[in-house]
Every structure is written in C-alpha cells, then in structure tokens.
C-alpha cells in the first residue's frame, strides 16, 4: 500500500457511527431498496464476514416495512481473491445461497466497507459460479473511497473520507458483541 498519500480532510480518529446510527442507516438502505426495486425478485447476499449479518438486518427491516420474505444469504469470496498469495491461507467463510437460487433475480451484494473495490470484483466472480442474475447491485454500510477498480455502490450508508493509512473498523453485534464503526490511524492492514 502506498504509504505517503496526503490525507484529505480526514476526520479525526474515533467512533464514527454508534449503534443508533447503524440502525438508522440499515433502515434507510432498506427503504431505498424497496423504492428502487419495486416489483422485482430481489435476493440479498452478504459478503462474509460482516456483510452477512448486515444483509440479514436489511432483509429484516424490509420485512418489517412490509415487503414479505426477501431471500437472504451469503457468498464467500475467498477463493476468488486476487491477493491470496500475499498472506497465509485464509479460512473459508460461509456460502449460503437461498433456495430458489439467483438465476434471473436482482441480486444485491451487501458489505460493510467499500474500499479498493477488489472484494466486490471477487464477489462478482463468485456470483458467476453460482448462477446468472438479471441484475447485480451493491449496498455498503461505509464507503471510504480509494477505489482501485471501476466499481461503485448503489446504496451507501455513509461516505467517510479517509486517508490510505487509516483503518475503518466495523463492529457488529452478531460478531463483535457491539454495533460501532471506528476510524483509527493504525498501520496499514
């Protein structure tokens, strides 16, 4: 990772989003999804680890607002990553494709942080192994910029300008025991 990029008005380190913020954001994304996908066959697929519980939360919100039972699952991208050789072998994560599959559906990928875009690229590859959706969209809790690929999100929870050497950490209750998004000026990941 390039070390000496200038930080552009980055917020100071600390807690960026609290539990209430996260809840409001997922709720808003749920509303946006309903508005923009009316009448279509939607499937939500979270990218593990933290995209998976986020997808379930959004699906639950959509349920509560009134659209019944949106199929929700997860898709592991590990085997499609382009940086496998840079680290020790990673354990695989859960892939759960809802019954009914994804062929001809509108698939919305859900992830916690959109950064370089490489994860999403890998997810698109992984998706093509599973089937052929009619349309693929992307929903993220945080967009922190610094894209390395021509990829953008359709639903963005919060844009957070960062510098490259900062770390955005999303904690979710299901995995970390707390709902929180923090920014720190740690070492590069």
């Amino acid at each position: 990772m390039a070390p000496n990029k200038e930080a552009r008005q980055s917020p100071v380190s600390g807690v960026l989003l609290e539990a209430a913020d996260i809840s409001r954001i997922t709720s808003r994304i749920a509303h946006e999804i309903i508005e923009r996908t009316a009448g279509q066959d939607v499937v939500l697929l979270g990218i593990p680890s933290r995209g998976a519980p986020l997808a379930h939360r959004i699906a639950q919100r959509i349920d509560e607002i009134g659209n019944s039972n949106i199929p929700v699952g997860s898709i592991d991208i590990t085997l499609h990553r382009d940086d496998l050789r840079l680290k020790a072998p990673r354990p695989l994560q859960e892939t759960v494709i809802p019954t009914g599959g994804i062929d001809g559906k509108l698939v919305i990928l859900v992830d916690d942080v959109l950064f370089s875009g490489r994860t999403v690229r890998a997810a698109l590859d992984a998706l093509s192994e599973v089937g052929r959706p009619a349309l693929v969209q992307l929903a993220v809790l945080v967009d922190r910029g610094h894209r390395e690929l021509p990829i953008r999100a359709d639903y963005v929870g919060k844009n957070i300008p960062t510098s490259l050497n900062q770390v955005v950490k999303v904690n979710l209750h299901e995995i970390d025991g707390i709902d929180q998004v923090t920014l720190s000026s740690g070492e590069s990941r």
């Binding site: 085997l79 496998l84 050789r85 840079l86 680290k87 020790a88 072998p89 990673r90 695989l92």
Partner: peptide, 8 residues
C-alpha cells in the same frame, strides 16, 4: 488450498 492457497 490450505497448503498452496496462500503466500509461499
């Protein structure tokens, strides 16, 4: 995968 999938 576990032997070869990561860094050498």
């Amino acid at each position: 995968y576990l032997l070869l999938g990561g860094a050498t």
